Simulated scan of single mutants.
Amino acid sequence: MALQQQIKNTNTTQLLGIGIFSLLVLLYAPILLHWVDGWLHKTISIEHEYFSHGLIGLPFAGYLSWKHRKQWQRLPNKTHPLGIALLVIGGVFYLSGVTEWVNLSLPIILAAVCLWFKGFPGLRLQGFSLILVFLATPTAVPYLIAPYTFPLQSFIAGTAGFILNQFGMQVVVDGINIYVGGRIVEVAPYCAGLKMLFTTIYVSLMLLYWTGALSSRRVTVWFLSLAVIISVIANIIRNTLLSFFHGSGQDAAFKWLHDSWGGDLYSALMLLSLVPLLNWLDQYLSAPPETELEAEGLMSNE
């Protein structure tokens, strides 16, 4: 009887899990398809386009959750009251009709489901997947940050003008405007490299997790810091090239790098450069076990 009761409880839990998963698919499939279509065809709002790293992050989050499925099943069923609260908040956000709130309801409800079924152990198990979903969820954050990017815009414009001057071009920089050959290039708030910076940090976190380097605080801090610097430098070079193309009348090259797939290719090459950087940092900053043992031996001899 006890075995039959256990099997019955297991089947009930599985059916409930399948039902909740099916409901989530029905609720969020149209939203996710809208995101993907907007990211691929650039038909989504400029602010929400900043989260296009979700094209690689969301599938990776799904893969990690699937990879942890056996560990998930082994966790004891334990409901935490916070799960109910988050479920209510997520439901209110979804029904509000406000775009940003509806979007944010996805990571909130996913976290609620983890707490509802497995408590905090389940939330910890799926923690990184939930972080990837949250950081890929389109919100108004870029719009809120844009008014404060003026110093960065001015820095990029001044540096790009300085570089072009070194190549003998007549360049005048006025605030965020670059005058090249009588033509003006404006380093607008959305040209300040925030999108590239968001993507760089996101991909860096994925690389750190995938390689296991996320467990090393020193490697993580150094890698994220250098990744941000590389992103800023890459954006300065991109704006310099755009100013050169526009000022020299190469409109086709300007459109290719600014509006077409040239910008995506440039970003992809920059992101690929992060892989050897992480490998080098991991080897350089992680002390070999032999070295640690030798150091302990010297200390014990003293």
Rank of each mutant, 00 (worst) to 15 (best):
A252N: 06
K255D: 05
D251G: 08
L87R: 04
I156T: 01
G212I: 08
L269K: 05
T211D: 00
L274E: 01
P151S: 02
F198M: 14
I229P: 08
L24S: 06
I201L: 10
G17M: 09
M299L: 15
I230S: 15
G54V: 00
F128D: 02
P121Y: 00
Q5R: 14
L40Q: 03
P107W: 04
R69C: 01
L226H: 12
L27S: 07
G127A: 06
L194Y: 02
K8F: 15
L274Y: 05
I201D: 05
I184P: 08
V180K: 04
P107M: 12
L269P: 12
W39R: 00
L274V: 06
I7T: 14
I156W: 00
E294V: 14
G181Y: 12
T149N: 02
F245A: 06
V133A: 05
V92Y: 13
F51R: 02
P76I: 02
I184R: 14
L214A: 11
V113G: 00
Y94G: 10
R218S: 10
A85Y: 13
R183M: 13
L26R: 05
L272R: 13
F155L: 03
L86S: 05
S225D: 11
N239S: 11
K42F: 12
W66M: 05
T220A: 11
S231M: 13
G17N: 14
L298V: 13
L224V: 09
G17L: 10
P289N: 14
H246N: 12
Y63L: 09
S260P: 00
E47D: 15
G263I: 03
Q71W: 03
Y148L: 02
S300K: 11
L115M: 05
Q14E: 14
I46H: 06
L214N: 01
E290D: 13
S248Q: 13
S260K: 07
W222D: 01
D264L: 13
D37G: 03
I184M: 15
E294F: 14
L164I: 00
Y266V: 14
Y94D: 02
M299C: 15
A253W: 07
H41Q: 08
Q14Y: 08
Y50P: 04
L269H: 12
F128L: 00
I237W: 10
I237M: 05
E47P: 03
V113W: 08
W35L: 04
H246M: 15
G57T: 07
E47R: 04
A252P: 11
L33H: 01
V219Q: 00
I236Q: 04
S22T: 14
V180C: 03
H53Q: 13
I46T: 09
H48W: 09
C114S: 11
H68R: 09
D37Q: 12
V187L: 10
L277G: 01
I176T: 09
L135C: 11
A2M: 15
G119L: 03
T291H: 08
H80N: 09
V88T: 10
T10W: 15
S260W: 13
W261K: 05
L242R: 02
S65T: 10
